[in-house]
Nucleic acid binder design. Structure first.
Length: 217
DNA sequence: AACTCGGGGCA
DNA sequence: TGCCCAGAGTT
């Protein structure tokens, strides 16, 4: 069922309408990302792998009272950190990566969080997604975070095709209205959970952007 | 490109 | 019980 390819300007226009509508529908973006420092956001995002942001918030609430600096994370045995982040899953790998990451922050970056994609992804446990979250939300550097929600939704909405996260990232950067890249992922996630869901059937009857969805045309 | 780490939520 | 979750590293 190869539908005719939509032109880039049309896609841009449609994406812009979708985002405008979603912004009105989901009025409070970035709740889950309201951390007090780049370092806290970095740790929280590292913990978020294959784990909901609600759980990450729950865990970090206690975690950030106990650990306030890179030094605090490497001052405890790995097993202790594992217990403190246990319920986020993948706790052994995450604890190891966090300690390794903190060691390098102290050794190579004067204990601060670096501000380039290359430096961030050179840290243990920090990949493209985590790096883009930190860059876009802490340092106001344009970047599109491609996660499972974004991948699912842009495919369903016919904005971009495929599963390759890097390809989707570049495709979306070209289509993204310049003023919205910062909220894009959050809007996709809110919408993905509430309406355009992965597990249960999408609730298309309640969808605020159904008029722009090729699935329903 | 496929596989592994992994507890937790939800259908 | 089975599938999925604001991923990243290794082979």
């Amino acid at each position: 069922m190869p539908t005719k390819k939509e032109s880039t300007p049309k896609k841009k226009e449609r994406l812009s309408r979708i985002i405008t509508e979603l912004r009105q529908h989901y009025p409070e973006p970035r709740i889950a990302l309201d951390y007090s420092s780049p370092f806290e956001l970095l740790i929280a995002t590292m913990l978020s792998a294959q784990c909901t942001d609600e759980r990450v918030n729950q865990v970090t609430k206690a975690l950030f009272k106990k650990y306030r600096s890179p030094n605090d994370y490497i001052a405890v045995p790995q097993e202790e950190l594992e217990q403190d982040i246990f319920s986020t899953g993948f706790y052994k790998a995450k604890a190891k990566n966090i300690q390794s990451c903190c060691t390098r922050l102290l050794a190579d970056f004067d204990g601060e969080v670096p501000q380039t994609l290359e430096e961030l992804t050179s840290l243990a446990g920090v990949g493209r997604k985590t790096a883009n979250v930190v860059l876009s939300h802490c340092f106001d550097i344009p970047g599109v975070v491609v996660d499972t929600h974004v991948t699912r939704l842009v495919n369903r909405m016919g904005i971009a095709e495929g599963e390759d996260a890097v390809k989707l990232e570049f495709a979306l950067m070209k289509l993204m209205p310049s003023e919205v890249w910062r909220d894009f992922t959050h809007l996709m996630i809110m919408h993905g959970r509430a309406v355009c869901s992965a597990r249960s059937k999408p609730k298309c009857a309640e969808c605020p952007v159904a008029a722009d969805c090729p699935k329903l045309l």
